[in-house]
Design a protein around this nucleic acid. Structure first.
Lengths: 219, 219
DNA sequence: GAGTGTTTTAAACATACGTTTGGAAGCTTT
DNA sequence: AAAGCTTCCAAACGTATGTTTAAAACACTC
């Protein structure tokens, strides 16, 4: 199980293919032939296709959560603390952490951004369970801060605004732009991740902090 | 090819299953057994699984585009017109049209909202081609109005803001909430489509109309 | 009610998939 | 260099999939 060359070749190839085509639409034969390894290698090294999918997610979700926890610690955020962080800082913590990963990562940011989006939309039961088991703690913590920093929102409106926000993020991450090729400007708007995040954060912030529709909650 | 009972039973069952599990994850055997028809019925009536998928999309995309074109006509919007419609009205036209469909539709709004989301995220080549062929006209028209009504945005920033917006919409429509079950409040926030749209439109509007990051473009 | 076209049915077909197998090849340790 | 472990490989396995077939059942016209 030690970091073999084959394991990495499989991970690199699978990551790209999954991001391009989705999980069910990508076969082990495509992956192994792209990776230049034997078909049986996946089952030998990972056990199953599902386990491979999970391995791919932990390869970047591990570093991501580490970076975010470090960031929270540096800023002195704590669950106990009464003072809420600024919403803008929460968003920035997330996006900055995301942008920090790829230096060590073979396939660039956009690939696992797209994977992140797939994790939401492809309903793969095993993946959902795995992600909940492994990463729900940091997710809940983040949500705690969001809740703290938006006290003027009703529970329902906050829930939906978070939903909308995650939608933007997840979708933006699908840089493959399935339908949106129709937009004539899609070629002009080059997909430099940092630039995109520059646009994204203010956009989200405006939506999240806009005047509530609901009656203000006591919370 | 006339509207047979079998055809409708297949469409109704397939719609729900596709929305729940995705296209590749739903087999013709699931569909036909849920619909209570013979396995061969799909190929007999539709020709192929892909054709069935397309048929499902035209069943609600047809009415949707009709409603939107009617709405545009009523408001007197025209491609030639110099006066841009309000961004808010564009969004409302879309969401209101969406909410108007289900009266005639067997499976409620949220099902084809979810399908709409799938259309973006599942990259099914044939679907993309089909949607582009059939519905790119109305889509481009809509984008024309959006461009008109946001003259202060640079091409790049407008592109990305539209991208973010479509992400929110597509994702919101996936009401199955894969990962978001983690949000404790997900049960409290009942998914009444009209209420969701009430939250959604102002949220999107705030993001779209917020102060540009880019230098203002001449356009 | 015989004849004609349409729809339904059970069965089979071909193919692609994830997984397993048993032996060969490659290392490392002795 | 033999032994023991790990990794690789070609082949096969079982299963599930979309699709096709040919006959049966049905519906309707004349």
């Amino acid at each position: 199980m030690a970091q073999s060359v084959t394991v990495d070749k499989i991970l690199d190839a699978a990551e790209i293919l999954f991001a391009e085509k989705g999980f069910s639409e990508t076969s082990l034969r495509m992956i192994t032939s792209n990776a230049g390894v034997n078909l049986a290698a996946v089952n030998y090294h990972f056990g199953s296709k599902n386990a491979l999918i999970q391995a791919i997610f932990s390869r970047f979700l591990g570093p991501l959560t580490t970076l975010m926890e470090q960031g929270m610690a540096e800023k002195g955020w704590s669950q106990k603390d009464e003072n809420a962080p600024l919403l803008e800082d929460i968003l920035k913590l997330y996006t900055r952490s995301l942008l920090k990963i790829p230096t060590s990562h073979p396939n660039g940011v956009s690939v696992f951004m797209r994977l992140m989006g797939l994790a939401y939309t492809q309903s793969q039961g095993h993946l959902r369970r795995y992600l909940e088991d492994e990463y729900s703690r940091i997710f809940r913590l983040l949500m705690h801060f969001v809740k703290q920093s938006t006290p003027n929102l009703s529970t329902a409106e906050r829930f939906w605004r978070i939903q909308f926000t995650m939608g933007s993020v997840a979708f933006t991450m699908s840089s493959i732009q399935p339908l949106t090729e129709i937009l004539e400007d899609s070629k002009k708007a080059q997909a430099n991740p940092e630039q995109v995040v520059n646009f994204l954060v203010p956009y989200l912030l405006a939506g999240l902090t806009s005047e509530p529709v609901d009656a203000v909650a006591i919370n």
